[in-house]
Design a protein around this nucleic acid. Structure first.
Lengths: 230, 230
DNA sequence: AGGGCTAATATGTCTATACATAATCGTCAT
DNA sequence: ATGACGATTATGTATAGACATATTAGCCCT
């Protein structure tokens, strides 16, 4: 175990046990360096992870303090659906439902500002049961290759991840009731709860793709763990 | 703009534009340091954020490479519900529904291993409309003060965050259909989609609290942004 | 009091160097 | 081939010092 890890663990201990109470100031880097008998850089290294997690807050001249309300923040990872299914031990199945080229008529949100679009709907299955309904718009200005691509056997999700660079991603998570289209494809009744992930991807300012992924509530959840250093 | 920020932006540019293709190796720290005319430490500083985001992967001796499948990971923050409502510009309302002390009979999951428990149900309202139904178990061995506390006016959520240290948090996000209890309190019909957050908090290995927070699907979503450095 | 300037100060950036460590790669013996 | 072993090497950790910069805190002036 490295020095900075021991120090980080000790600092976390002092915070969780309220030896350093929430909202209170910590000693300066120099003082801590002296206390632990290390260089200032090592103290900074130890604190870096705690800052990253929002456990301590640092400001020039004002000093470092324990966050008064430690945010319950955690990193969530949304995997490629095929890997998710295979990793769970199930068989993965894929089905293309529709692939239709069209203009801005498809762009109901105005997100793509009149660019030529490719609209694809497909289904991902886990052990033969519908797992995710994917409804995607691709900006053909940003991804001209997509127009020539056949998504019969490969999902646009994976194709894009492999082929297309992006620089920014926005994600929305929410629940909603299945409409008739979603219900038909996911083989559930209309109104059944869905876990929906919407994601839009940009390359600099150019919108690349907008996707809505719907899952039957009973098949899908997202789990995260945080805050364990050992 | 600091040197490491410029370098990080340039590296990200090379990755998103596939000058450094996914899965490919990038130059050594020494080479990059020479190219950018900085010390090795500055290159490491620039790379640190990219590693943190999972954009590059580094291994001793093997070198650094662009992640072959960049995970769509992002940091999600779950705020205290009162702040969330107030920040949205709405009026916050709180209502205690029940507060009942009891033994391990309440612990259906076996999570608390027979510890004495406090079971609290309450409601958070946004502009008078039910926004979150909170169903919580508190371990009185971990938080004896809770037994003496009156949650008539203050939600256990906030009380705990202020008073009780914790060291690890597990969170599950999912959708589900409202059961009759949830429907009654949230004033929606049974079967209506809910966005549910379940969270369990530990202090070291001691379970502190287990909470299920249910929101009507139309009122709640989680939004994240990632990958923009500028 | 209140407003504005200055000095003090804790954190942030950067450099340069040394050594530690994990993994790979080639070599050699089997 | 195959496996063991040791050299090589890129990243990881730690140190010490210099300077930059944001903010506070104190001071002076009105």
């Amino acid at each position: 175990m490295h020095a900075y890890e021991k120090i980080r663990a000790e600092m976390l201990h002092r915070i969780t046990r309220q030896i350093w109470p929430a909202g209170g100031n910590l000693p300066h880097e120099e003082q801590l360096a002296a206390e632990f008998g290390v260089a200032r850089g090592t103290i900074r290294r130890a604190m870096a992870d705690l800052v990253q997690q929002g456990i301590i807050v640092r400001r020039r001249k004002a000093g470092s303090k324990v966050a008064s309300r430690i945010a319950h923040s955690s990193t969530l990872t949304i995997p490629i659906v095929r890997h998710e299914i295979i990793d769970s031990g199930a068989d993965y199945g894929y089905e293309l439902l529709s692939a239709e080229k069209g203009g801005n008529a498809l762009d109901k949100t105005g997100h793509f500002k009149g660019a030529p679009l490719f609209h694809i709907c497909c289904l991902h299955l886990s052990d033969g049961r519908p797992y995710q309904f994917e409804d995607r718009l691709i900006n053909l200005d940003a991804v001209p290759d997509a127009a020539e691509t056949n998504f019969d056997n490969k999902s646009p999700n994976e194709w894009l991840v492999e082929k297309v660079p992006y620089s920014a991603v926005g994600t929305v998570l929410r629940a909603e009731a299945a409409d008739s289209t979603q219900a038909r494809h996911l083989k559930i009744r209309k109104g059944y709860p869905l876990f929906v992930i919407e994601r839009q991807t940009h390359l600099d300012i150019l919108p690349v793709t907008l996707v809505k992924m719907s899952h039957p509530a009973d098949l899908f959840s997202i789990t995260t763990q945080t805050g364990v250093f050992d």
